[in-house]
Amino acid sequence: MNPDDRYYHSEHEWVKIDDDGLAVIGITDFAQQQLGEIVFVELPEVGSTLTAGQVYGEVESVKSVSELYAPVTGQVTQVNSILSDFPETVNAEPYGEGWIVKVRMSDTRVLDSLMTSAQYSTHIGEE
């Protein structure tokens, strides 16, 4: 269910390294299911810095607000502006069109601390 081509963070974020070496970040299918219908995504500014483990944005459903935790450290090069008008894309395609930000990582070693899809599946199974 969770694709094997990316890394997973315990706070239900995924990171995929694209062809340009950028870290594409989104939330997992498990996370979007827990949140329910997403109606608002608070995106960071392009050029701002994300710090691994720190809050970088928010997703809101009708009833609740959840913080987004950065799985890596680096500078934001692009945000998924589709989400401003169609936040429900995160529900529909959490691993595809529903990505949230692209980041130029300052240190790729942080990836070693993240989980594989198999480890993440165990992680959510245990929760």
Binding site: G36, E37, V39, S61, V62, K63
Partner: peptide, 9 residues
């Protein structure tokens, strides 16, 4: 019941 399929729907 808070919701059945989703608040928006």
């Amino acid at each position: 019941p808070m919701q059945y399929i989703g608040i928006k729907q």
